[in-house]
Simulated scan of single mutants.
Amino acid sequence: MSEIRYSVPAISCGHCVTAISGEVRRVPGVSEVAVDVDAKLVTVRGNGLDDAALRAAIDEAGYDVAG
């Protein structure tokens, strides 16, 4: 199992957590999503994770990945 972390500066509330988690969970290979509002961090765990697909899912939720 691998882990990828994304800095998402616009995360600010529970709605953000729900929106991002919902989209990211749809990406094949994702087994766990953790969104930390305080750290502005999205951590994704799973097998065969596709960075581009994960970034696209976060974008689809309405948020931009920093860097």
Rank of each mutant, 00 (worst) to 15 (best):
D50I: 13
A66S: 02
S31T: 15
A39S: 11
V37N: 02
E3F: 08
I4D: 02
V24E: 08
D64V: 12
G48T: 03
V30L: 01
A56Q: 10
N47T: 10
P9N: 11
E3H: 10
T43F: 09
G67H: 07
G22A: 07
G48P: 06
G62S: 00
D51M: 07
D36A: 10
E60M: 08
R5I: 12
D38C: 11
A34L: 12
A10M: 11
G48A: 00
D38S: 15
T18S: 14
A61V: 10
T18P: 02
A10T: 13
G67L: 01
C13G: 09
P9M: 13
M1P: 08
G46N: 04
V37R: 01
M1S: 11
A61R: 06
L41T: 14
E32I: 14
A52P: 05
R26M: 10
S21G: 13
S12A: 15
A53E: 08
D59H: 03
A61T: 09
G62E: 03
G48F: 11
K40D: 07
E23M: 07
N47G: 12
G62T: 14
A56K: 01
V30M: 07
L49V: 13
A34V: 15
A61F: 01
C16N: 04
V8R: 00
I11A: 03
V8I: 06
K40L: 03
D59V: 12
G67P: 01
E3I: 14
G46E: 03
I58Q: 03
V27Y: 02
D59G: 08
R25Y: 12
V8K: 05
D64A: 14
M1D: 08
A34T: 15
G48I: 07
E60Y: 05
A56I: 09
D59M: 05
G46S: 09
V35I: 09
T43G: 01
V8Y: 01
D38R: 14
I20Q: 03
A19E: 02
C13D: 13
P9A: 14
G48E: 03
R5E: 10
E3L: 03
R45I: 11
T43C: 00
R5A: 06
L41H: 01
V27F: 06
